[in-house]
Design a protein around this nucleic acid. Sequence first.
DNA 1: GTGAAAGCGCTAACAA
DNA 2: TTGTTAGCGCTTTCAC
Lengths: 350, 350
Amino acid sequence: MDSHQVPARPTMRDIADQVGLSIKSVSRVLNGDPGVSEARAEEVRAVARELGFRRNDLARGLRLHVGTETIGVVIRQASTRFYDSLIRGIDEVADRHGALVLTATTPGVERERSAVLALSSRRVDGLIIVPSSSDQSYLRAEEATGMPMVFVDRPAKGISADTVLADNASGGYAATKHLIAHGHRRIGVIGPDHSAFAPKERVRGYRDALKGTAPLDENLMRLDAKGQAGARQACDQLLALPDPPTALFALNNVCTIGVVRALQAAGLSHQIALVGFDDFDTADLLSPPVSVITQEVEEMGRTAAEMVFARISGEPAASGPTRTILPTQLIIRGSGEIEPGGVTGRRHSA
Amino acid sequence: MDSHQVPARPTMRDIADQVGLSIKSVSRVLNGDPGVSEARAEEVRAVARELGFRRNDLARGLRLHVGTETIGVVIRQASTRFYDSLIRGIDEVADRHGALVLTATTPGVERERSAVLALSSRRVDGLIIVPSSSDQSYLRAEEATGMPMVFVDRPAKGISADTVLADNASGGYAATKHLIAHGHRRIGVIGPDHSAFAPKERVRGYRDALKGTAPLDENLMRLDAKGQAGARQACDQLLALPDPPTALFALNNVCTIGVVRALQAAGLSHQIALVGFDDFDTADLLSPPVSVITQEVEEMGRTAAEMVFARISGEPAASGPTRTILPTQLIIRGSGEIEPGGVTGRRHSA
DNA sequence: GTGAAAGCGCTAACAA
DNA sequence: TTGTTAGCGCTTTCAC
């Protein structure tokens, strides 16, 4: 933005001049401090109203050495419901602390850094970051000066800070074991292209679950799906394999929806089992209803916010960074209970 | 938040002291201004790095009389996808202008005011507001001082400002006419409880469409659904009527999903026609796929942002507030084409 | 090349 | 009850 002149906003000076009082008295009135006669006080308030005065909290904070009573949240734009719930959790806690939550969403990996630094330069009191870039060493200055920071969904690289994670590996393990328990041996995995932490962990769980039960077939792993459309395409390709999977594990809800779309188009919704990671609004309304691994996203938000405020209010900086891992849960709805051959529930010859 | 001491962050003063230089020279170096010997400049940079210095943009802005290069967005927490798309549109434009977008979400109607004023006190350069409260006269000061403000989805009350709206009435009209064209005469409406502008407009379209074609039956109108669960319940009640509707119009996507849930539970998904206002991710995956009225939400975001920046860069303040209305569109998918009696496509005796 | 002084809008501390 | 002084962190103007 071309640095422009900010539109003239009235200051206490303006009010003082107009009322014929010192700026300090105006300050007193406008802050509800005592020591100004009611007559003049009323006059000040009237003029303030008339002029459209709004106290400049930035200048105030500068003088008072108080924080901005604001915490910044940086997340990547994504079509995942994840962020709604996360923000809801953060807001709830911030509200209790009387702080404002300002969220910056970044279009892609590249802008994470600039958004975070902009927030830091604007002196937010704390930061909650869902990292999308692979390196956060640009935050070393903030680390050094003790800026309260919490990372969510994936740990920071290059600095150490508080972290809140879902138990992704366990979730991946549970999803896979569940499919195995229903008789599957060839389980496809479809995940997003950017090699993020969470999907990787989920895949780790998948691999662990397979060990000793079923062979790991790299051909069944498609970790390069670009968005919903990419997931759909990846699914199509898996289904076209000479020896296709009998079950699928989708690594996030965007992928899950893409997979559902592919299965429906192929008329295989009731033939191929599916478990998705992360719940979504209409999962129970689809046919079959989609079994998912849920993570406690709102709780992740609450936890992260609590940590930030603990640090802000002087949690011994000495106490090292913490890592909180929240559990995941399997929700059985139908799609994950299809057995090889398309049978649901109990087995009988297809 | 209890106004606490902000953690000590190094200032230019600190660097100057340590290097043995004046604060002004430090400022020069850190801003890339010329006139400092390279040797000392390098020293300054080294110390800055070591100390974890980050320029205080608030103080800088105070001195420079420049804006904060930030625009504030205030929206209400809601499970509607609406906001994702809106922010995406705003971000896109803001990015082009090199501005940061900071979003404050408010839990409910009550906090709109405080969030907006906090942003204003923090000197954002402009505001985009999706109003949830019914009165914005608290923004008169901002109006008076020419703070660039744009309202989205619903006009401001109590002040006049730029506005971006969807053509809700036309959408409601189109949805209803579509159902009428498919033979329906008893069309139920299910909408959210808070008497917001957009749902009301949609109902207006509904009423208009009915005129001269079908009688308006107040018993078929349920404009009091609290969330998804409320919509589901309202739907159940409509279906239990002695003379139930043969078609339904859901006023937003939260309601739509609630209605789908009710219809599925009642086993009537393929008997009762349904058109929803506002699209959602899995609308085409449900059975039957849900016909909807779409609004160009991302475009609304882009438009609002363009307006804000136009005002910021001095669009003649004299030029009165504008109002932009974006079209809606009917997407035919199946649920809206069911005819009375449960027939799809063409008619034949039930 | 470098620095001293003044001031952005605001407020504590201390007069008057 | 009211005003003056000083200064938050920064940058401009104008000296040296």
